[in-house]
Design a protein around this nucleic acid. Structure first.
Lengths: 157, 157
DNA sequence: TTTTAAATAGAAATGATTTCTATTTAAAAC
DNA sequence: GTTTTAAATAGAAATCATTTCTATTTAAAA
């Protein structure tokens, strides 16, 4: 196998700790879902993750996938993608600090944007609107360098 | 009636022009949908708009509402709200220039944010990632001044 | 080991949204 | 003002991602 896969053991140990600290049981399926997302740079749909899990486990229900993805994303271990087609997508982002993403509409690649206008936004909302900011969505859609080079990456997902 | 409703005739004339310029037929239902959204400062679901339309028209299909809302939003006459519950919501925003919104999670009020980090974001994406920005989503969720005053507006929609 | 609360499988339900087809209607052409 | 025709609509039905439900299994605490 040419893909230099990160050691499962190391990951499992690392995530066991995280899961334990969040009062989530360390189940093989939970670790497998994390494993899939960690070794994939694209965002995936629950269905796609299910397909891969079925190869590993045989018996696995789609609701299990949905439930786990939701739990992991609620606890900020993985992130949700806000997609125009209104399906759910998830991906794992190792960057633990607050940031946003550049999402390629052609190849699904996700990259970090180390820029957040949150402070300015909060200031504006406080000063002009007298409101209180609870959360914000910022997502930038476009075409990544690879897709631009290849063939002006025109194909939408 | 105490609500100072904008003259329907004036609105109809104004939007007739817009609709015509977009090659959309000027139908009573299309105008009524615009009328509802214009006279409402909150974002509404297709279902809610349907309920109001039924009072005016009696016979009206829900698919008609969906179709029209989608067409109008595609043509940037109305805006979509990206909601965590993944239902569609729409509202009319008279501000025709590029801007973003502060969305109250309690009362559904929408207010303009005259701040956009688009330029900086585009610069960052171009310089660091070599990608091309096609679109972006920026939405700030929180509690508006009224809800904060009333009772610390805790009730989610 | 035993216990127990969390996690899972699988079937079934849900419900927002879309599709389909026949009918109606706005507005262009006459 | 009629006729024409392409767009818009009604209503029923389908779709399909997501959620719920219940019985069973399992991780991990006792």
């Amino acid at each position: 196998m040419s893909t230099p896969k990160i050691q499962n053991n190391a990951i499992d140990t690392k995530f066991s700790k995280i899961l334990r600290s969040l009062n989530l049981k360390i189940t093989p399926k939970r670790l497998a879902i994390l494993d899939i997302l960690i070794n994939e740079s694209l965002y995936l749909s629950p269905e796609e993750i299910w397909q891969r899990m079925k190869k590993q486990f045989g018996r696995i229900g789609l609701p299990t996938i949905y439930r786990n993805l939701e739990e992991l994303s609620e606890r900020n271990i993985i992130s949700k993608v806000t997609h125009p087609n209104r399906q759910l997508y998830y991906y794992f982002c190792p960057n633990r600090s607050h940031h946003h993403h550049f999402v390629c509409l052609s190849c699904r690649n996700v990259e970090d944007i180390n820029f957040c206008a949150f402070d300015e936004l909060q200031k504006e909302v406080k000063r002009k609107l007298n409101g209180k900011v609870i959360s914000h969505i910022l997502q930038v859609n476009g075409y990544c360098r690879n897709c631009l080079n290849k063939k002006e990456g025109k194909n939408e997902i």
